[in-house]
């Protein structure tokens, strides 16, 4: 189990995420939802071992019962794999695909070149990457194929934690399904945090959600019951479906409105919402809303 306890990440002036707590069970995919400015990427990058300069953090992270430092060397890349939105930024543009996969095996596991190549080829087959293209450079591949290679690269050291930061956002819609199915296939026995703003992606995994707004957890659990979650889930363009009424936009973390940050955009807001609701149990979920019980 991966447990995050009261994690805050801030600049010198404001919080990007505030007292975020959640856990991911082994073999599960936690879907992290939210709009720009919610703190999704900051949280995801931190858990994969990266914190942008100028940011500080407090809180605790436990992995299999042991307290760990996500910024430590044996966590980044070894225990936690990362898949980024833009597959071209996952690779060195001057390195051929197979070499990019072989290198970490030789460095971290001290494998011989032959052993490392065998292992790399195994992973390329696992992600259904066409082997005849293994000597290509990243720019010679389409985004969809390169993202498959990036999945292999993230998993090649067999990390127990996998962070996928909008892995389908830069791809054309027909290619998205393939990537999310790959990630589902490899979620077995791993702890996966899947960051997305696509409703289809969220519903595809659809078992465990974490919803952030203005750096706060609005909801965690197997259902989506918060008014904000409902807005996200209906904001999808489909033939024959009415588009929802969407007012306002997600706030910058430096200028959150007082009380519940979603209040100015919420159709169900009441006077009580000028006070920040606590995260409390509602059915199987934890929900931060005065009006959901």
């Amino acid at each position: 189990m991966l447990i995050v306890k009261e994690l805050s990440i801030k600049t010198s002036a404001f919080h990007i995420i505030r007292q975020v707590s959640f856990k991911i069970n082994q073999g599960r995919v936690k879907v992290l939802l939210g709009e720009s400015g919610a703190g999704k990427s900051t949280l995801g990058l931190f858990l994969s071992g990266v914190l942008k300069p100028g940011l500080s953090w407090e809180g605790e992270v436990f992995y299999h019962g042991e307290k760990i430092n996500p910024l430590g060397e044996d966590w980044r890349g070894r225990t936690a794999g990362l898949i980024l939105q833009d597959p071209y930024s996952s690779f060195d543009p001057r390195q051929r695909i197979l070499s990019a996969l072989v290198e970490p095996l030789m460095v971290h596991l001290s494998l011989s070149r032959g052993e490392a190549e065998d292992r790399a080829l195994y992973w390329l087959r696992q992600v259904e990457f066409p082997l005849e293209k293994r000597w290509r450079f990243p720019h010679e591949l389409s985004g969809g194929l390169l993202q498959r290679a990036a999945v292999a690269a993230a998993l090649i050291l067999e990390p127990g934690v996998l962070i996928a930061d909008e892995p389908t956002s830069a791809l054309d819609p027909p290619l998205r399904a393939g990537i999310r199915e790959l990630i589902k296939k490899f979620s077995h026995k791993r702890h996966v945090l899947y960051i997305t703003h696509f409703v289809e992606d969220a519903l595809f995994f659809g078992e465990d959600y974490l919803v952030l707004y203005g750096g706060l957890v609005m909801e965690e659990g197997p259902r989506l019951r918060h008014p904000y979650s409902k807005l996200l889930m209906t904001s999808v363009v489909k033939p024959g479906k009415e588009l929802p009424e969407v007012t306002g936009f997600s706030p910058h973390p430096s200028s959150l409105p007082p009380g519940c940050p979603f209040r100015p955009r919420c159709g169900e807001a009441s006077d009580r919402c000028y006070e920040l609701p606590p995260l409390k149990k509602a059915g199987e979920n934890l929900v931060r809303c005065w009006n959901v019980r």
Binding site: H197, F198, L232, V246, S250
Partner: peptide, 11 residues
Amino acid sequence: LDPTVQVQILK
């Protein structure tokens, strides 16, 4: 843009 904002701009 975020899907919520996409909805606004399309309308």
